[in-house]
């Protein structure tokens, strides 16, 4: 079909190589850094020859960090746990709330449906800071400050619109007749939703959930403002290695590596959903 000249093959190969280099090099470098001591990191000029050390990871995992000013306690693993919990719970809640709503918008053109859908989506685009500041006060009054519940609620600001918008597209792409057929066969709308709509939109829901997870995981400012230290995610936790008595570059690097690992693992596991899932109809017109 497609004729590929040698020149083109070389061009494509080179381009791909450069791209992979650009996107992967920083991660590789940080990965290498995480196995070095501050001393080898700070060498000038930089070098890839070093004796690997597991000190950084050891410090993170045991929670004991040895620095110029003695041994510090760090709660990195707790931060990591918080990130996992907050992201998973937020995405789960957003799915439970968002998927039925997406279904309603896709299947039922009811009065004001487009306006409501747009309003929901527009929250995705509200500057987080705008709502965050008054929110701290309201949370105080409501007793939601410093609760996982409150945080998960605010995280909906990130997850819910994303899921609504993407999943809605999927539902719209499922033939309505298929669902009608199931209902006429004698099943309730709920059974139809569960047995027909959900499985058929499955890959899309997985892809949307994964994207929402990534965005939730990467969030920084919500937990910082709204919760106490024991509920901080890894994005805040990684800053703990910038201490008054010095910057622990090796530990920062190890923290970054550890903080990427869970999302990467999920993405690798769910990769076919992500690329193929999105291509089914999520964002198409």
């Amino acid at each position: 079909m497609e004729t590929t000249s040698t020149f083109e093959k070389i061009f494509r190969g080179t381009a791909l190589l450069l791209i992979v280099l650009f996107f992967m090099f920083p991660i590789l470098w940080i990965f290498l850094m995480s196995f070095q001591t501050n001393e080898t990191i700070l060498r000038i000029p930089p070098s890839v020859v070093f004796t690997p050390t597991f000190e950084n990871y050891q410090a993170l995992i045991t929670g004991k960090l040895t620095s110029a000013a003695g041994t510090l306690d760090i709660a990195f693993m707790r931060n990591l746990g918080n990130s996992v919990f907050l992201s998973v719970a937020s995405v789960a809640v957003a799915l439970v709330l968002g998927v039925p709503a997406a279904y309603a918008f896709a299947r039922h053109k009811f009065r004001g449906s487009e306006d409501i859908a747009f309003t929901l989506l527009s929250f995705r685009f509200a500057p987080p800071l705008l709502v965050l500041l008054p929110l701290t006060q309201y949370f105080q009054w409501l007793g939601l400050a410093d609760t996982y519940f409150g945080l998960i609620w605010v995280y909906q600001l990130i997850c819910l619109p994303l899921i609504l918008w993407i999943v809605r597209g999927y539902f719209e792409d499922i033939s309505a007749d298929v669902e009608y057929a199931y209902r006429i066969a004698g099943h309730s709308w709920f059974a139809t939703f569960r047995k027909i709509a959900l499985p058929l939109a499955g890959p899309g829901i997985a892809a949307a959930g994964l994207l929402a997870f990534i965005f939730a995981w990467n969030n920084f400012v919500f937990a910082l403002v709204l919760a106490s230290a024991d509920k901080q995610p890894v994005t805040v936790g990684a800053l703990a290695f910038v201490t008054a008595s010095g910057i622990q570059y090796g530990q920062i690097a190890a923290a970054i590596v550890l903080s990427i690992t869970p999302t990467l693992a999920i993405a690798l596991y769910a990769q076919r959903y992500l690329v193929e899932g999105l291509s089914l109809g999520a964002v198409k017109g």
């Binding site: 791909l16 791209i19 992979v20 996107f23 992967m24 920083p26 991660i27 470098w29 940080i30 850094m33 990191i41 700070l42 060498r43 000038i44 930089p46 990534i214 995981w217 990467n218 969030n219 920084f220 890894v234 994005t235 990684a238 570059y249 920062i252 690097a253 923290a255 970054i256 903080s259 990427i260 999302t263 990467l264 993405a267 690798l268 990769q271 992500l274 690329v275």
Partner: peptide, 30 residues
């Protein structure tokens, strides 16, 4: 490759900025 290329997206921007700061440090930055 497409999955590998997603890795930067999974790096929190706050942490990515930190990484780049390390890499662009005039002293030891690669």
């Amino acid at each position: 490759v497409s999955i590998m290329l997603l890795m930067p997206l999974m790096t929190a921007p706050a942490l990515a900025a930190l990484m780049w700061k390390l890499m662009t440090n005039p002293g030891f930055g690669i």
